[in-house]
Amino acid sequence: MSIHIILFKSALLCYLAATVLYLLHVVARKEKPGKIARWVLLGGALVQLVSFVLRFAQVGHTPVTNMHESLSFFAWCLVVIFLFFDLRYRLSVMGAFSSVLAVITMLGSGIAPRAVEPLNPALNSWWFPLHVTFAFLGNAAFAMAFGAGVMYLLQDRMLKSKRFSALYYRLPSLDTLDSINYRALTFGFPLMTLGIISGAAWAESVWGTYWSWDPKETWALMTWFVYAALLHGRLSIGWRGRRAAIFAIIGFICLLFTFLGANLLLNGMHTFEAFQSTPY
């Protein structure tokens, strides 16, 4: 087993353990597991960081050139962004959500093809890591907004219908969920914008054109507009609560399609196959 696989599996195990601990805390309401969970999650993130650095040293480029690598990198971004939010909010329900999502992403990464083919020279640019890091961190922030949005809708529905399930006692207040939604948006939107700009700059440096309307670019732009609308609504029209939650959910669905759908279903230069072919 290569060192890379060992590190990958240890990180996955950490995330899995954190998930169990967070669920123990949220469902069975035990205090200690919740506290341990964030350290386990942090441990997993550090292990993965080491794995990226080693991988970078080994192949000499940013290791997000196939589905396996990019899903794994996305899981890492999720965990990092959650830990960042956790500094302020200390919400184990968000922890449970993030660690579950990270585990699913890691599992997806585990079954995705991990062959490293000869590299497209286009990727050998400093714009590439910038583009990917901005985009992925932005996506992770939007995932937080999505999680908070779903929880908001659940909590809002229970408060309106006055029928409380066990979940009611475990979810935080509407105000907290709404403010996470807003915070995530204010982080995610600039990151996504930077991601798109750096991507365009990279495209210009490699292909001589900023924008070529490939499917992923089109979808990313659409998603960007959804989030722009939400940000605008929040700042100038006083959108909040339910509507903001719904928008965050729609935005994230678009994002998922941009990220996965465009790679799996549509053809364009963002697909991993395109990475390995000659530039056009």
Partner: peptide, 9 residues
């Protein structure tokens, strides 16, 4: 308590 579930603070 309900108020806290809505406003938190």
């Amino acid at each position: 308590e309900l108020a806290r579930k809505i406003f938190s603070n």
